[in-house]
Design a protein around this nucleic acid. Sequence first.
DNA 1: CCTTTAATAGTCAGCCCGACTATAAAAGGG
DNA 2: CCCTTTTATAGTCGGGCTGACTATTAAAGG
Lengths: 239, 239
Amino acid sequence: MDGYDKYAHEPFAVTVDLAVFTIREGALHVLLVERGQEPYAGRWALPGGFVQPDESAETAARRELAEETGLSDVSGLHLEQLRTYSEPGRDPRMRVVSVAFTALLPDAPEAHGGSDAAQARWVPYGTAGPLAFDHDGILADAHDRVGAKFEYTCLATAFCPPEFTLGELQQVYETVWGTALDRPNFRRKVLATPGFVEAVPGAARLTGGRGKPAALYRAGTATALHPPLLRPVREGRPA
Amino acid sequence: MDGYDKYAHEPFAVTVDLAVFTIREGALHVLLVERGQEPYAGRWALPGGFVQPDESAETAARRELAEETGLSDVSGLHLEQLRTYSEPGRDPRMRVVSVAFTALLPDAPEAHGGSDAAQARWVPYGTAGPLAFDHDGILADAHDRVGAKFEYTCLATAFCPPEFTLGELQQVYETVWGTALDRPNFRRKVLATPGFVEAVPGAARLTGGRGKPAALYRAGTATALHPPLLRPVREGRPA
DNA sequence: CCTTTAATAGTCAGCCCGACTATAAAAGGG
DNA sequence: CCCTTTTATAGTCGGGCTGACTATTAAAGG
C-alpha cells in the first residue's frame, strides 16, 4: 500500500451485486431485475448499484437489499460478502469492480419495482436465461457458497420464519442441496447439535396439513455446526 | 447495476493487500513491509499495491506477490481471494477499496526489497505490533480462513516443498492450528484420504535427523477432504 | 553394543451416521 | 364412526471413522 505517487491512472467505479435467495413453494428462487438500457437491455441481472462515497460495500448492499425487496427492516436478514469481481472487460462501458453479496430471506415478499425503474422479480433458480454481464458466474458462486455453508453452519434457519418445524428445516436443506434426506436421521442430527434449534415452550402446529402435528422450533444461538452435517455423496455419476 | 446515470460522485482507488504466510523453523511467518511515509510511517503493513487499469485484482495480487517475495515463478503458488475491505475511513488520505488475498508459500526465500523502496521482511505471526490501516483485521481474517480451510481441503500441502514426509505435513497442521496432533492417527487419516498425498516411488529420506527414515510423499490430485479432518476441540477454556 | 529418537504398524472402544422399522396423532372418506 | 392415509416421532442395528494407546522397526550417537 506504499507508493501512492503511482496514482496516475483512471479510477474505478465500485458497485455491489446481490444474489438474494428465498424459498417459495419448495423451490429456490433468486431476485432478479430486468435491464432497461444497453448493454444487455431486456436481459435479467442481479440487483445492485453503486457504492456511495460515505458508505462501505456492506452498507451499500444492505441499502440495495431494502430497496429491491421493498422490506422496511432488513437488519435481521443474513447478508454476507461473497467475493469481488474485477475482470477488466466485465462491463463494456467502463472499469467496474463489483463486490458481490449473498442474502437469504425467509418468506418471499412480492418483489416490487424498487426505487429504480427496473422491475424486480423472483425467478426460480436455474430457469433464468443467460444473465447480463458476468452475473451467471456470480450467481453460481453464490449458490455453491450457500450449499457449502449449510454443511458446517446453522445458516439454514435464515430461510425459515421465526418459528418453524423440523420438516420445514429439512425441506430447506433438500431444496438448496437438491437431495432427499432421511427424516429421522436429519431430526436426530439437528436435535443433537446444541444451539442449532430450541423448542418453542408450549405449542404445536396442527391446522396446516393432515398428519400428526409437528413441534415448533426457533433458531438457536449457535452459529457453527460441530461436527458438520455433510450432504450425501452422489456416487451415481461423479460430476 | 442499472442506473449508471447516478455516476456523479468521486471515484474509488482499488488496491490489493496480501497476507502471505510461510513456515520457518516450525513457526508461522507473515510477509510484512515497513512503511516509509505518512500515514503510519515506520509501521509494518501488508504488502500490496494499486490495481492497474488493464488487470484484474487476481492478476495484480500475483504481480505484487512476485515483486515482494522476489520469486521469479509464482504461478504455482496458492493465491486466494479473502474478501474486500471498503470502510470509508480505512485510509485517511482518500477513498480506497482493497481486495485482500491470502497466499501460501512452501519454503521461505529471504524477502528482498522488491521494486518499491519499502523493505519486506518475514515476521513470526503474532509478534508484529499493531499494523498500519486495518491490516491487523485483514491478517486475522486470513489466518482464520487458512485454519478453517485446513479442515476440509488439501491446502496444507501448499506449505510443503515438492517432496515431503508425513511428519512435515503434520507439523504444518500443528503450526497453523497451534495444536498437537497424534502422529499415528494423523498418518492414518491422510493415507486413507484418496488423492491427498501420493508416495514417491523408490525413495526414503535418511540423512536429516536421527531416527527411522521417513517415506517421501508428493501432493496428490485431490483438492477437497471428504470427510474433513477436524481440528481437536479445545475444551479447556472455551474461547 | 546399548540407548535414544523418530517412523510405522496395530489394537480397541466409543460415537456418529446411514438404513431401516415401529409407533403416535392428526385429517379424510366411506 | 371406523378405517385408511399421512406425517411426526421413537427406536434399533451395523459399519466406519476417530481418539487413545501400545508395539515394532530402523536409523544416529555415545
